[in-house]
Design a binder for these strands. Structure first.
Lengths: 340, 340
DNA sequence: CTGAAAGCGCTTACAG
DNA sequence: CTGAAAGCGCTTACAG
C-alpha cells in the first residue's frame, strides 16, 4: 500500500539500515550514499511509519495533553503556549479530554502509553485526584497544571490563586470598600477553593470586624447573574462584589446594569482570570489577569526538562496581575488598553 | 521497565495470543481464562503499548487534526464539535498547526503516517493548497474543512460564506441602507474571498446603481478600527458597514463609538462569524452566525464514514444564520438572547 | 478454545 | 562506511 523503508532501500540499492541512518541524519553514511537515499526517498514520497519508529526507538516525539475539556477560553489560551513550545522542539500534541469523569481521565492517562514521551495534565477537580495518582505511571514524565497533588512524582505548575485573591481584596479595601461580598466557584474545584480562601484570609487580616459574605456560584455567567439578583434583594447591599472568576463577575455586572445600578458608583465589581471579554464590557471589568498561555508554555518547558532528566521537579507558582478598570473605579473612558 | 503483554501472559499462565484476545474482547476465549487474564492485567496495571498495537493492527484509533493555529475562538469552537464526536467513537486526537507555513503543513501531513487513521485538515489560505494536494496521501482518508480544493480525493465541508454574505446584504438593503461599505479580509483567505464575492454580487443584483466600496482588512480588530477611522474621514459617509468578520466589525464599531457616532442611527454595522463577543458589545452586533462546533462535528462524521469506506465524498456546505441585533437596528434593550 | 510463529516497519548494537 | 540480524510489543492467520 504505502511505501516503506524497504522500498527505498531496494530503489537506492542499499540496506534498510543505511536508509534509516540517512533519513535520521546520522553521520556514519557516505555523503554520496546519503544524497542518493534522500533523493530516492523523496521521489518515492516516503515518510517513515511513526508507530514502527516509536516501537523500536522508544520515542514518539509527542506530548500528551490531558485536560477536562478541549474548548473554551482557558483551553484555547493554554494551547497557545503549549503549542508554541511544542513546535519549537518539533513535538506533536496528542490531546485528550475527560469531561470531569475520573474513569475517563484514568483511561486517557493509560491510553497514552506508547503514544507519548511525556504528559501535561490538568486536573482542577478534587474528585479526580485519586484517579490521577492511580494512573500516573512513574515511567512516563509528567507535569501537573493547576492540580493540587503533592506526591513528589511529578512536577507541578499552578496559578497563585490564593495570593491573587488577596491582592484583589487589598485593592478593593484600599479604594475604600468595607462591605465586600464574594461569589464563589464550584467547591470541588481547587482554583475556586484557593480564591475563596484568599477572600476569607484577606478579610480576617485587613477587615477583622467585617463578616464574610459568600454567595454560591459555579463559574458560569448565569450563576453570577443569579448572585447579583440575590444581592439586589438584600436589605443591606455590599459596596463591592468580588467574583471568583470573570464570567460570574460579568453575570453579576449585567444584573446590576439591568437594575439600573451605577457600577462602580453604587457597587464596585471585580473578577478573576482576565478573559478578553473583561476589557470589552461596559463598564470594563477590574480583574486579576492570569497569563494562561505563559502557564502552558512554562509547563511544557518543565516537562521537557523532566524528559531530558535534567531539572528539579519542584512546584512553581505563577502570580496573576491586578488590572484595575472601570468597574472598580478606574477612569471612565472607553479604552482598549489594560489600564493597570 | 513497564509491563508488557508477556508479563501478563506469564503471570496468567497463558500465551500472549490469549492475553491479546482477552484484552481485545474477542469471543474465542474461555470465560474463566478471560476473567483470570483481565484480573492479572489490572493487578499488574498493564496497558497495551499503543505503537506496538498500531504497528501490527494497522489501526491507531487516532484522528489527526491539522489546522493553521491551535488557539483562538475558531479553533476552540471547532474542537468542541470535533472532540465530542471523537469521544463518542473512542478516538484520540493528534493536533498539529502550521502557522501559515506551507512547508510545515506538508511536514505535519507527512508526519501523520503511522499515527492516525484519518485526517481532518483546514487550509483556508490560498498558498497552502498546492502543498495540500502534494502531501495528502491517497492511502489516508481525509476531510477538508473550509478549504477550496476540488481534487475529488477527499471529502470537504465548508461554510457557505458566499450565501451568508448575500443574506446579510439583503438584510441591510431591506432595512433601508443604500450606501454599504465592505471591510474585506485577507485576500489570500478563501473565506474572505467568498464573503467579498457575496458583497459584490448582492450589490450588483439588488443595488445595480451603487458603486462597491471596499476597504482593506486582515480579519484583526485593529484593521477594522483603521477602516472605521478611514470611513469617518470620507466626505460622503456610508449608511452601513459590513465587515468580513466580527473582529473587524468590532474594531470599526469602536472607532464609531469613539467618534461619538450613533450606531445604528448614523451608520449600521454588521459582521460575520457570530463570536460570543458580538452579543456583549454595546451596541450588540448584527452578524452571520456560523456554527463552528457543528462544522467540526460534521467533518468528523464525514471522516469516519470515509474511514469505514461508506459514504460518498461529496462536499457539503453549512449555511450561517442571520442574527439581527442592535447595531443594525434591533430593539435597543440590553439582552442576552440572540434576537434573530 | 489455545498456542507457536510470522510479521507489522522501523532502529541499533554488532561485525566487518 | 555498510549490512545482516535481532528486537521493539503487539495482532492474527494457521494448526490443532
Amino acid at each position: 500500500m504505502s511505501v516503506t523503508i524497504k522500498d527505498v532501500a531496494r530503489a537506492a540499492n542499499v540496506s534498510v539500515a543505511t536508509v534509516s541512518r540517512a533519513i535520521n541524519g546520522h553521520d556514519n553514511v557516505a555523503e554520496a550514499v546519503r544524497l542518493r537515499v534522500l533523493s530516492v526517498a523523496s521521489e518515492l514520497r516516503y515518510s517513515p511509519h511513526a508507530a514502527a519508529r516509536s516501537l523500536s526507538s522508544r520515542r514518539t516525539n509527542t506530548i500528551g495533553v490531558v485536560l477536562p475539556d478541549l474548548y473554551g477560553e482557558f483551553f484555547s489560551e493554554l494551547m497557545r503556549g503549549v503549542d508554541q513550545v511544542a513546535r519549537e522542539r518539533g513535538y506533536h500534541l496528542l490531546v485528550s479530554s475527560y469531561h470531569g469523569h475520573p474513569e475517563e481521565q484514568g483511561a486517557a492517562l493509560r491510553a497514552m502509553r506508547g503514544r507519548v514521551d511525556g504528559l501535561l495534565v490538568m486536573s482542577p477537580y478534587v474528585d479526580d485526584v485519586g484517579c490521577l495518582t492511580e494512573h500516573l505511571s512513574s515511567s512516563l514524565p509528567a507535569v501537573l497544571v493547576n492540580t493540587q497533588l503533592h506526591n513528589g512524582e511529578a512536577a507541578s505548575l499552578s496559578v497563585d490563586n490564593y495570593g491573587g485573591a488577596m491582592t484583589m481584596m487589598q485593592h478593593l479595601i484600599a479604594t475604600g470598600h468595607r462591605n465586600i461580598a464574594f461569589i464563589a466557584g464550584p467547591d470541588n474545584n481547587f482554583d475556586a477553593r484557593e480564591r475563596l480562601r484568599g477572600y476569607h484570609d484577606a478579610l480576617a487580616q485587613q477587615l477583622p470586624d467585617a463578616t464574610p459574605w459568600v454567595l454560591a456560584g459555579d463559574f458560569d455567567e448565569a450563576s453570577g447573574h443569579e448572585a447579583g439578583k440575590q444581592l439586589l434583594q438584600s436589605a443591606l447591599k455590599p459596596d463591592a462584589v468580588f467574583a471568583a472568576n470573570d464570567m460570574m463577575a460579568l453575570g453579576c455586572l449585567f444584573a446590576f446594569n439591568q437594575a439600573g445600578l451605577d457600577v462602580p458608583g453604587d457597587i464596585a465589581v471585580a473578577g478573576f482570570d482576565g478573559i478578553p471579554l473583561s476589557r470589552y464590557v461596559h463598564p470594563s471589568l477590574t480583574t486579576m489577569q492570569v497569563n494562561i498561555a505563559h502557564l502552558g508554555g512554562e509547563a511544557m518547558n518543565v516537562l521537557f526538562n523532566a524528559i531530558a532528566g535534567t531539572g528539579n521537579s519542584e512546584s512553581q507558582s505563577l502570580r496573576p496581575e491586578l488590572v484595575v478598570r472601570e468597574s472598580s473605579g478606574a477612569s471612565n473612558k472607553r479604552s482598549h488598553s489594560n489600564t493597570s
